[in-house]
């Protein structure tokens, strides 16, 4: 019986909230739009940040150090060195490229230019060197890795380390990444703050318009909880509707930006990234929408329903 009573109350206040939402018409529309704009800005910043970091990780993946060994160093010795190096925690992966593989790659690369393969045939012997291709855990560790290899006991057997050629590019990428992270974080924080302020204000305005009704409801004998519940439901509706609006908005944005980001994210562009993660995005949008709506409603009620 008690549970039934609670369910009845819940259903009534839910309906009440929904009716408020529907009949408020213009005010509800305006609140949803404002909430949508702030959610849109926040989530767009977040998606951009995630996408940027994916793109940067992809670029990072393409950076490596190649350690070329002298002609007279045998395969066994190189593999021995490889085993030694793999123990370092800064090193993510090491790939052995033999002379023959290098030649094959070189021929493939020079497919369109018969003169290169002709020249190679002319030489007869394989002029290329065997190498270890090393990838680091993070780009700022390449310097350290190449230095320690250059100063190691087997440095005599090394012909050259071609990290220095990439050094400038790697360092630039590092500083750009740091900057993007900082800017993204600052912008994100600012927009989250603005979004919360705007939403609070919108819902507080709704409440302000209805403050006299609180008094009437109390006079008619409604308990505070009964008065409060519909407004919280109303806040939840604002959140859900805004989440849907933002979902649609983000879809078109990502479609619009898709050509710019073609192939920069593994397996597609911004649009495919968005679609692939749409469930997670929608979930967090609904969650933050409901959170924003509910918190704003509760603060506003506290102000106008003196308990």
């Amino acid at each position: 019986m008690k549970l039934q009573m609670k369910l009845l109350k819940l259903r009534r206040t839910f309906n009440e909230g929904f009716t408020n939402f529907r009949r408020n018409g213009w005010l509800s529309f305006a609140t949803v739009i404002i909430l949508s704009i702030s959610l849109y800005i926040i989530s767009f910043t977040a998606i951009l940040a995630v996408a940027t970091s994916i793109i940067l990780t992809n670029i990072q993946d393409k950076i490596n150090i190649s350690v070329y060994f002298k002609q007279d160093v045998g395969e066994e010795r190189i593999l021995e060195i490889k085993d030694k190096l793999i123990g370092f925690q800064e090193i993510k992966s090491i790939e052995y490229v033999s002379k023959e593989q290098a030649l094959e790659q070189f021929r493939k690369f020079g497919d369109n230019s018969p003169s290169i393969s002709q020249a190679l045939d002319e030489i007869g012997d394989n002029p290329l060197l065997a190498a270890l291709v090393i990838k680091a855990e993070s780009p700022d560790q390449y310097d350290l890795i190449s230095k320690s290899i250059a100063e190691s006991s087997y440095s005599e057997e090394i012909d050259k380390i071609d990290f220095y050629e990439n050094k400038e590019a790697i360092e630039r990428l590092n500083s750009i990444m740091g900057l993007i992270k900082k800017i993204g974080l600052a912008l994100g924080a600012i927009f989250v703050f603005i979004g919360i302020l705007i939403t609070f204000n919108a819902i507080r305005l709704t409440m302000y318009a209805q403050r006299q009704e609180f008094e009437i409801m109390r006079l008619v004998g409604a308990s505070n909880r009964y008065i409060r519940a519909p407004f919280i439901f109303e806040g939840i509706f604002y959140g859900i509707f805004s989440a849907v609006v933002v979902m649609v908005g983000l879809y078109f944005t990502s479609m619009f930006l898709a050509p710019l980001t073609e192939e920069s994210i593994s397996g597609g562009n911004l649009a495919t990234f968005y679609l692939k993660n749409s469930l997670i995005i929608f979930g967090s949008l609904i969650f933050s929408g409901i959170l924003l709506g509910t918190v704003s409603a509760m603060i506003a009620i506290r102000k106008y329903l003196k308990i």
């Binding site: 009845l8 009716t19 408020n24 009437i216 409801m217 006079l219 004998g221 409604a222 009964y226």
Partner: peptide, 21 residues
């Protein structure tokens, strides 16, 4: 009067009963 403007005459009267479960 102090009627709830968003509710019909029926709903205004019903509200007084709804709050009493």
């Amino acid at each position: 009067f102090k009627l709830l403007p968003q509710k019909t005459a029926y709903e205004n009267v019903a509200y007084a009963l709804e709050v009493c479960d």
